[in-house]
Design a protein around this nucleic acid. Structure first.
Ligand SMILES: [Mn+2]
Ligand SMILES: [Mn+2]
Ligand SMILES: [Zn+2]
Ligand SMILES: [Zn+2]
Lengths: 140, 140
DNA sequence: CCAATGTTTGGACTTTGTCTAATTTAATAC
DNA sequence: GTATTAAATTAGACAAAGTCCAAACATTGG
């Protein structure tokens, strides 16, 4: 879980490994997520990527994030009704959600045990179980 | 967990018990949720309430649902990035989310055990831990 | 009845996200 | 290299969920 220091070249390789053609925009978007190892919204990603020179359109940011999700390069985290967060960590883990600040904090999958996964409705298969613990400052 | 047969009068009492002035619109909205014991979006609630005669505006539906939430009469379930579901069951329980149909299915809190709630960040208090299991048809 | 307070309303507005048709870029074929 | 495709990006129109506001309406208590 130590932080790796990704380069943009690493991103190109990562994209190829997921059968994604590594264009300039896609590399920048992947780099924004993976170099920070953070949970970012599309808006935040767009701001990061276009920080210096405007490089990438809104349509491309959304296209790319959906592409990444389809190829399981990133995962969506849905905790805020008004925006989706993208998580470069696709392995099984859980989240604290700070309702005050909107910040997501990872919980190691081993720190939470889900016992007795209940029987699924017939013909259905689980996509994965996630735990979300909403937290807030003690004295609001 | 057997289904109770609520009347509109029950709703008025329920609202009063939660310090909410039971207006006609509020009673109808509460009745839509509690008589069905279902997970409904604001849109669905508005359609139900305005089924015969148009009775309630969009602003009032949203105002009322937020009021209900503040008074902990209902709970929000956030699983779909495009809409919030309102749950008349505020007790601790969990959810299957059918990604195909958009349907939410309750999981009894006893069917899932969350072991070892991880240590919270300092000065933070948990609002409750929820498990979401996303499911989909086996052969898509 | 009047005044005061609480509630509802239409419609403008904001935000997140999608869609489309046109353009740009990249890949492939000669 | 140049021509021909195919893939990717873009601006801006569009859609949907939700908020906001000032005006209208309802209720209560005197
Ligand atoms: Mn999405
Ligand atoms: Mn809300
Ligand atoms: Zn995470
Ligand atoms: Zn429920």
């Amino acid at each position: 879980m130590e932080k790796k220091h990704y380069t943009r070249d690493d991103m190109a390789g990562l994209l190829r490994a997921h059968d994604i053609n590594p264009t300039h925009q896609r590399i920048e978007i992947a780099y924004a997520l993976f170099s920070r190892q953070a949970h970012l919204s599309a808006d935040q990603i767009m701001a990061i990527v276009n920080d210096r020179h405007s490089e990438t359109s809104k349509a491309t940011v959304y296209n790319t994030l959906n592409l990444f999700r389809q190829h399981k390069l990133v995962r969506e985290v849905i905790v805020d009704p008004s925006k989706v967060f993208y998580d470069p960590n696709t392995g099984p883990h859980h989240h604290f959600y700070n309702m005050q600040s909107g910040e997501l904090i990872d919980i190691n999958e081993n720190d939470v045990q889900i016992l007795g996964t209940p029987t699924l409705p017939d013909g259905m298969v689980a996509e994965g179980a996630e735990v979300i613990i909403r937290i807030r400052p003690q004295n609001p």
